[in-house]
Simulated scan of single mutants.
Amino acid sequence: SFTQKIDTHKLYKKENNSISFQMNYINDIASNYIHNLEETLLKLEEGSYQENNHSPYNKKLLKINQQKGIVARIPIGSLTNNIFLQDRGPSFSIKYKTLSLTSSNINKKIKNYGINHLAISIDLNVTIVLQILVPLYHEHFKENYTIPLVYEVIEGEVPSWYQN
């Protein structure tokens, strides 16, 4: 499962007028997410994925699981560029193979938000690299995803010079 409970109050500490990010906790979240993602991709490839939620996304994963990583079947006639042969002939499978090149990095931002507020955002950027296998051909698929962990506005003190 990709979802995990995140205690947003453990992501950073606000003490006096400073904010510090709790990198141990943030790195644990990132490593758990990457571990779960790689484990799910391998299970799909092996045909051993067994998640039980009823989301449309999970139904698609279960179908890929039953086909052991096959994401599509294309009729050979579609390679002829002839509209009349488009749906003809036996099909060949397009399958993915996990390359274990899943990685992540963490983006942290603090910026002023109005007179006495700070906006804090922490995002997890994940990169997935898979190999798409087609008979006599293969290609790498690389995609980047951004998962927001927290976006919070913190109220500070109004500067005394602003109030005369």
Results as ranks from 00 to 15, higher is better:
18 S>T: 05
9 H>Y: 11
38 E>M: 08
122 I>F: 07
17 N>T: 03
69 G>K: 09
148 P>M: 00
2 F>V: 09
162 Y>V: 15
28 D>E: 10
56 P>H: 12
16 N>Q: 07
100 S>M: 14
106 I>E: 06
83 I>V: 03
52 N>I: 14
122 I>T: 11
48 S>A: 07
115 I>P: 03
51 E>A: 14
26 I>N: 02
89 G>V: 08
64 I>P: 01
113 Y>Q: 07
44 L>W: 04
21 F>G: 00
25 Y>R: 07
66 Q>I: 00
151 Y>W: 02
146 T>N: 03
50 Q>T: 13
141 F>I: 06
66 Q>L: 12
134 V>G: 05
45 E>Y: 10
107 N>D: 14
127 T>H: 07
52 N>V: 08
86 Q>A: 09
8 T>L: 10
35 H>S: 07
118 L>C: 08
21 F>D: 00
61 L>E: 04
114 G>P: 03
27 N>D: 09
78 S>F: 08
22 Q>A: 09
14 K>T: 04
12 Y>V: 04
109 K>M: 12
65 N>W: 06
120 I>C: 11
162 Y>Q: 12
63 K>Y: 10
82 N>A: 02
96 Y>F: 15
46 E>H: 10
59 K>T: 14
109 K>V: 12
83 I>C: 01
70 I>L: 01
25 Y>C: 02
110 I>N: 00
40 T>N: 00
140 H>C: 07
76 I>K: 09
88 R>W: 09
75 P>N: 04
54 H>K: 15
50 Q>N: 14
102 T>L: 00
10 K>N: 09
13 K>Q: 10
68 K>A: 06
1 S>D: 11
46 E>P: 01
154 I>W: 01
99 L>Y: 09
153 V>Q: 01
29 I>K: 02
80 T>N: 03
126 V>S: 02
145 Y>P: 02
106 I>A: 06
56 P>D: 14
85 L>G: 05
104 S>Y: 13
28 D>H: 04
134 V>T: 12
62 L>K: 13
56 P>L: 13
87 D>E: 14
64 I>H: 05
12 Y>E: 05
143 E>C: 02
155 E>S: 01
102 T>S: 11
6 I>L: 08
119 A>M: 12
79 L>Q: 04
23 M>P: 03
106 I>M: 04
97 K>R: 14
42 L>E: 11
55 S>V: 13
121 S>Y: 11
82 N>S: 06
130 L>F: 05
40 T>M: 02
84 F>W: 06
144 N>F: 00
115 I>G: 04
35 H>E: 05
131 Q>V: 03
107 N>G: 07
43 K>P: 08
102 T>C: 08
32 N>H: 01
35 H>P: 00
120 I>H: 05
66 Q>N: 13
16 N>L: 01
8 T>I: 13
81 N>L: 03
